[in-house]
């Protein structure tokens, strides 16, 4: 029983990491008012570039991670050029990026499908804490990316958004770009920066998939996790800490599915595999269900989310 619990917890944390990384990246972009629906494609490209770096160019796992982060930054910059510089429709460009990324990843990765990753992220047990019963194996015996996604990154994002002047500017750009512009904040610059950084984090989530979680590459390896991350941002009300908790919750659902499959609880595998998608859908609806009439919810979308900013002229 202890083993099962520890295993469920460990898998929950591990699969939640993918969502946490991507969703924390997305929240940075969305806080500046840019809705990046291309996460799925960026994550797929991150996953494939990491495996190519490691298996073809024999880099270390860290090298693979950096490669995928650079690929993600470039794709984010590509999206930002289209939506921030040219001010094209963000929904269309996001979908375009998803098609572009998943298609290209499928084509580039075809020769490496099924190959195990030659370099992987190793577990780094935290001294003392990892000796705890159940929790030790469940929470404190993971690779560095997991700790980064659940501890370091949420702290950085929270501090940046809520405790710095820069973060205030970021939020101002997302809520009211013309007021931000009038007060001298560079709207386009901030949007460009955080769209790219967010995309880089999503790509790292892809690298985590192929270099730690699975660890190999196959077509469709991302399995909609980019979209789940976007849904999680809505569920979490665009706040970093709820995002991390939501990612854990999502991980727990996924993990329970694995356990049910292994222990054969009599539910067909296909229906268990649906659970992450269906529970994400349900989670997404909760903030709307609990909304009372006339009451302003905590955590609403940035007012300018999805809208290109044109400076009023003459």
């Amino acid at each position: 029983m202890e083993d099962v619990l520890a295993g469920v917890l460990a898998t929950a944390v591990a699969s939640g990491t993918i969502i946490a990384l991507a969703a924390l990246g997305e929240v940075l972009a969305e806080r500046t008012g840019v809705l990046n629906l291309g996460l799925e494609g960026i994550m797929a490209m991150g996953a494939v570039s990491a495996i190519i770096a490691v298996n073809v160019f024999s880099t270390t796992a860290f090298g693979g991670l950096v490669t995928s982060a650079i690929v993600g930054l470039l794709m984010g910059a590509m999206f930002a050029v289209a939506t921030v510089i040219f001010k094209a429709n963000q929904v269309l460009c996001g979908l375009a990026l998803t098609f572009f990324g998943t298609g290209l990843a499928g084509r580039l990765g075809a020769p490496y499908a099924g190959q195990p990753a030659q370099a992987r992220f190793q577990r780094v047990p935290i001294p003392l804490l990892s000796d705890l019963p159940i929790l030790g194996r469940g929470l404190f015996n993971h690779n560095v990316l997991v700790y980064f996604a659940f501890l370091l990154l949420p702290i950085i994002v929270t501090f940046l958004l809520y405790r710095t002047r820069h973060g205030l500017s970021v939020r101002a750009v997302g809520e009211n770009p013309s007021a931000a512009d009038a007060s001298g904040i560079g709207v386009a610059g901030l949007r460009f920066l955080y769209t790219s950084v967010g995309a880089g984090l999503s790509a790292m989530a892809g690298a985590y998939l192929t270099l730690a979680f699975i660890p190999s590459w196959a077509e469709g390896v991302t399995g909609g996790r980019g979209w789940i991350a976007i849904a999680l941002v809505i569920f979490a009300g665009w706040r970093p800490i709820p995002i991390v908790l939501g990612a854990l919750l999502f991980g727990a659902v996924t993990s329970l599915g694995f356990v049910a499959q292994l222990r054969d609880w009599g539910i067909p595998a296909a229906f268990l595999s649906m659970m992450p998608y269906l529970s994400t859908l349900l989670l997404m609806l909760i903030p709307f269900m609990t909304k009372r009439r006339g009451e302003r919810r905590l955590g609403t979308a940035p007012d300018a989310l999805g809208l290109p900013y044109f400076r009023e002229e003459g």
């Binding site: 494609g41 590509m78 289209a82 040219f86 001010k87 094209a88 429709n89 269309l92 460009c93 979908l95 375009a96 990026l97 998803t98 098609f99 572009f100 990324g101 998943t102 298609g103 290209l104 990843a105 499928g106 084509r107 075809a110 077509e219 290109p308």
Partner: peptide, 23 residues
């Protein structure tokens, strides 16, 4: 070529079409 390659090309088409709409 492959279906995946075509999907990637489609993605580019959509991206340019969205930019073209603004232009």
């Amino acid at each position: 070529l492959s279906v995946n390659a075509v999907i990637a090309i489609n993605g580019l088409i959509l991206l340019f079409a969205a930019i073209g709409e603004v232009a």
